[in-house]
Simulated scan of single mutants.
Amino acid sequence: MNSPDVWTPIDPLGEALHFLRMSGTFYCRSEFTAPWGLDLPPMPQCLMFHVITTGQCWLEVEGEAPQPLQPGDLALVSRGEGHRLVSTPGATAAPLFDLPREMISERYEVLRQGGGGANTNLICGAVRFDHPAAHQLIQLLPKVIRIQPRPSPHTDWIRDTLRFMAAEAETLRPGGETVITRLADILVIQAIRAWIERDSAAQSGWLGALQDRQVGRALQLIHRDPARTWTLATLAAEVAMSRSAFAARFTELVGVPAMHYIGRWRMHIALTRLKESHTTIADLASQLGYQSEAAFNRAFKRYIGVPPGTARRQADAA
């Protein structure tokens, strides 16, 4: 009998968080003096974050009230929307890519800007999530998540991590870029966990379904083995429910019927693999349980909107 993987979370929500593996697009240390303003463009499929290490600023996202950020605050702009960081609300903001920068490495840089007044230092970054479970989760997040660690046993380590990150950014010793990027990844995941724990919106929809004992288990099975020939009957049997009761509960909690969810999940996995590897479309069809490449192509176009060959060419061009 095979022993379980001790690193695999045993709860469906924990497993979804386990898939939040990030690939960094860029990280930077920003050194600003008032008055200053930074206009960040939209970055589709990315999550952007800002850590305030010294000074203060305002975060402006369209459709949201301006939010003040203080030292130790962590702000996530979860869907890659364009936004502004400014010394005072309404201040003129320079486009990100118009600013002079000091390139420390391919993915780490230092930005400097301002009029010589009060200092504000930030650590900023944009990260991308590649797993379909991560995409599903990110779409459910609010536009902005703001974490303000307050002294408590649950948040002391966050404040300590932010201080450690600030010290590394200040000196950038050998290996400092690696330390900062790893700490940033952890902080982003912790911020998402904090939102799930405190926001009622996380108790409904797909996230709520993951926390349901039976539907959550069914989702976990689908995520782990998407190529299996799933039917309503086999899924219902796995979670000890009748076929009709399971079908109704799945649709109620997830928002789509189980078989539609399975098809869509497979195609999102296929889209990720098309972008990341040179696997042939025929091999991909086989890996996801399709008996023919033609059947796979039809399913892919139905869910994604374009044939798989087109999706691969678009990804290569991007």
Rank of each mutant, 00 (worst) to 15 (best):
T25D: 14
I189R: 14
L40T: 15
D225I: 00
R84C: 12
I192G: 00
V61H: 03
W157T: 10
R224W: 01
E81A: 10
E109T: 13
K143R: 14
A169N: 00
R313N: 06
N119W: 13
Q139C: 06
A295L: 13
H131Q: 09
I192W: 06
L96E: 14
V6C: 04
P132S: 03
H268F: 01
M241G: 04
S30V: 13
V61S: 07
A169T: 02
P44K: 02
Y303V: 08
R217T: 08
Q214S: 05
M165P: 05
T33V: 14
L122Q: 08
T155S: 13
E31V: 12
G255A: 02
A169S: 11
P42V: 06
I158G: 01
S78W: 07
P66N: 10
E197N: 06
E293Y: 05
Q148R: 15
I262W: 00
E293L: 04
V239Y: 03
A134Y: 00
P41F: 04
F246Q: 01
G125K: 02
T161M: 11
A245I: 00
V6P: 13
W265Q: 01
I192K: 03
A295Q: 13
E81D: 14
G255W: 00
S23W: 06
L13W: 02
P35Y: 13
V51D: 03
T54K: 14
E106D: 15
E64F: 05
R302W: 03
S277H: 11
L140T: 11
P42C: 09
R198S: 07
N121T: 15
T272A: 08
A194L: 03
Q291P: 03
L172G: 05
I192D: 05
R112C: 11
T178Q: 15
S105K: 10
Q139T: 10
M22P: 09
H18V: 05
T231S: 15
S292I: 03
A209G: 02
A247C: 01
A315Y: 05
A295R: 12
R313I: 04
T229Y: 06
A282E: 07
L288M: 06
M103H: 14
A282Y: 05
D316Q: 13
A126E: 03
E62V: 12
R101K: 15
A247L: 03
H268S: 02
A247M: 02
R249C: 02
T53A: 11
E106G: 15
T92M: 12
P4E: 05
A237S: 14
T161Q: 14
A248F: 01
A258M: 02
